[in-house]
Every structure is written in structure tokens, then in C-alpha cells.
């Protein structure tokens, strides 16, 4: 029951939306397609849904050639960012739609449909709102209805196109957990498109990182985070800083002090070292770049600093609240020491 995508290429007039995309989703897997806008992730999802056709390549599900089936025949559940609910139908009618449009022989009886709708309303925790119209629901509720509508046809794959993109941060986080729970309950293979790295890392079993129509890296969230294959993946997965140094073997020399480096295909010599805000230390007298404190944000679990080097380079760092950092204020001069850096080819 696995989904196999091989060598998919899709070109729109003049620009390649996808080139040579190959990946596989295990049965029941929750896969995220992550990338900035224009990376081709939505195009890829539409190809999986059958709403567009690739120029070349193959898509198969459980050995069956998906490209021979149109969107109607694939039995996939699609959830759109815009919800795409039927405005003139009640919530219950929206959910039942995929069952009521089936031809006579395959259509479940009215009571079966009603039972299915009721169980789905329960699943999305909107038991009492079946008679409402979509306009009478909040954004989060609408997206839950859209998901229930997609699940009603017992899809072979569930496809979600930035489903939480139009919602505010709190609702988004809530729905994220809830979506994962639904996935674990139903066990349906799910492909989820997002540009939000936090969402992808939080939700997915594996993440496919896309850049300009090509797969940059595929891996489990932690793998991607610990072992990014390129500067693009490293930068896309979170806040980061850059500093120039000299790569020697497995450490970077910053002139006066050196720092252990994770090297990805880079040769010795002048290099750009990248590091995360929390892989740093600041001190008044220890080793490091001399930097000026631009701002101190003490709120939250961590202390966040904005620092500026002599060359004008701005760094963003995070530290535990401790002795060394507690009395820092804007205007101070301190030394910034990265504790772990990445060097990419």
C-alpha cells in the first residue's frame, strides 16, 4: 500500500515546476512536503491528486498506475488551504457529498450515510453543528469539516495543501496535534504540504524538502535537523548565523580560536561557517568574536540576544538564563563563541 513517485517532471510555460522528483511513502506514513513558495510542493500534491498531469515520470499506489486514473477514480482525500467547502450545503451535507454522488449501486443507503456522517462529526468534535452552514463556522471548524469530507470517502491517501495556512497561530498548533491524532487513528497514508518548517518537523514521520522543483533532502525530522545535507536545508529549518573562517579538517579556525565543525562536502580553506542561535556562548573575557550587544530579549525560557560584530555582521543567539548573561544590556561588548558550526560545499 505504498505510494511511489518516480522521476516526475512537470514544466509550466517556460519554467520547470518539478524536475526529476522521486520519493516513496510507506503505508500509513505521514509525509510532509516542505519548501518555500515556488518550490513546487503544491504542484506535486496536485499531480498526486490527479488535478494536473506530469510531463514525464510515474506515480503508483500499491502497484497500481495512478497516472491511468483521473482525479475521480483515484479515491484520494484532498484538503485545500481555502477549505473549498460547498457554501450552500450544511456541514452534514458537505461531509456526505462524496458518498451521495456515488452511482446507485455503490452508494450506501441513507441510514448508512447518516451513520457515517455522525461518526465523522464526532471525530472532528462538531457533533452539534451538522445543520449549520459553513459560513456560520470559524476557520478552524471549517477546516475540520473539510477534513471530515475528505475522510468520508475512506481515501487511499489523504492530501493536505497548507491546510492551516489561513488560521492563526494558536488554532494552528491545536489543529496540528489533532490532525496527527486523526492520522494515527485512521492510519491513512498522508501527504501534507507546508512552508512552515516547525509544522513539518512537528507533525511528519518524514519530511521531503523541496527547492526550485528538486528534492533537496528527505529524512526524519531529527535527521534533517541534525544532519542537513545542504546550506539550503540548514537555513530553511530554522534561525541561523553565518561567520567567515578557515576550514581545517574537522574544525573551523576563526583566527585565535577554533570550533568543531560538521563538514558536508566542503574542502579545506576559506569557508562560511553556519551555526544555530543556541549553539553559542557569550562571555566577557573568554574566546570568541568581539561583538556589541544590540538588544536583549529576556522574555521566555531563553534569553535572546542580538549582537553586532566589528564588520557590521548581525548575529542572533539564545542562551539559558545564567550568571554570565543575566546582567547583559544593550551597548555592552562581549565575546561570541560558536560551539558547533556547519560547513557546506
Amino acid at each position: 500500500m505504498s505510494l511511489t513517485v518516480s522521476n516526475i517532471t512537470k514544466t509550466f510555460t517556460k519554467f520547470a515546476a518539478l524536475s526529476n522528483v522521486t520519493f516513496e511513502a510507506e503505508p500509513g506514513e505521514f509525509l510532509a512536503l516542505l519548501g518555500p513558495s515556488g518550490s513546487g510542493k503544491t504542484t506535486l500534491l496536485r499531480l498526486l491528486a490527479g488535478l494536473d498531469q506530469p510531463d514525464s515520470g510515474a506515480i503508483a499506489f500499491d502497484g497500481e498506475d495512478f497516472l491511468q486514473l483521473n482525479a475521480r477514480e483515484r479515491r484520494i482525500g484532498m484538503v485545500f488551504q481555502s477549505y473549498a467547502l460547498f457554501r450552500h450545503m450544511t456541514v452534514a451535507d458537505n461531509i456526505a457529498f462524496g458518498l451521495t454522488v456515488r452511482p446507485g449501486k455503490e452508494r450506501p443507503s441513507k441510514s448508512q450515510i447518516k451513520a457515517k456522517v455522525d461518526s465523522l462529526l464526532k471525530l472532528i468534535q462538531l457533533e452539534d453543528l451538522g445543520k449549520r452552514f459553513p459560513a456560520q463556522l470559524s476557520g478552524g471548524q471549517r477546516q475540520r469539516v473539510a477534513l471530515a469530507r475528505a475522510l468520508a470517502i475512506e481515501p487511499r491517501i489523504l492530501l493536505l495543501d497548507e491546510p492551516f495556512g489561513a488560521l492563526d497561530a494558536l488554532v494552528r498548533k491545536d489543529l496540528r496535534r489533532w490532525l496527527r491524532r486523526i492520522h494515527d487513528e485512521t492510519g491513512v497514508t498522508t501527504v501534507f504540504v507546508t512552508h512552515d518548517q516547525e509544522e513539518a518537523l512537528d507533525l511528519a514521520d518524514r519530511v521531503v524538502v523541496l527547492k526550485e522543483g528538486r528534492i533537496e533532502q528527505i529524512g526524519k525530522p531529527l535527521e534533517l535537523y541534525r544532519d542537513p545535507s545542504s546550506a539550503f536545508v540548514f537555513e530553511f529549518l530554522g534561525a541561523n548565523n553565518q561567520a567567515a573562517g578557515t576550514l581545517r579538517g574537522s574544525s573551523v579556525d576563526f583566527g585565535g580560536f577554533s570550533v568543531p565543525a560538521i563538514v558536508k562536502g566542503a574542502a579545506d580553506g576559506t569557508a562560511v561557517a553556519r551555526f544555530r542561535p543556541f549553539d553559542t556562548q557569550v562571555s566577557r573575557s573568554g574566546p570568541g568574536f568581539p561583538v556589541k550587544v544590540l538588544s536583549v530579549l529576556p522574555a521566555g525560557a531563553n534569553l535572546r540576544l542580538e549582537l553586532q560584530g566589528a564588520d557590521g555582521q548581525v548575529y542572533e543567539t539564545q542562551h539559558a538564563h545564567d550568571q554570565e548573561t543575566s546582567d547583559l544590556k544593550a551597548g555592552d561588548t562581549v565575546n561570541l563563541l560558536p560551539t558547533k558550526v556547519y560547513v557546506f560545499a
Binding site: A49, G50, L51, A71, R72, R74, R75, I76, G77, M78, F80, S82, A84, L85, F86, F97, G98, V101, R102, A146, R149, A150, A152, I153
Partner: peptide, 15 residues
């Protein structure tokens, strides 16, 4: 008319 609404109907199996 929102094209996605039509596409939603299509993926749900509507002729």
C-alpha cells in the same frame, strides 16, 4: 467561482 471548490467535488468522486 473558486476552482478549488470544483476540484474538491472532483476528488470526492463527483461526475
Amino acid at each position: 467561482f473558486d476552482a478549488e471548490v470544483e476540484e474538491a467535488a472532483l476528488t470526492l468522486g463527483a461526475a
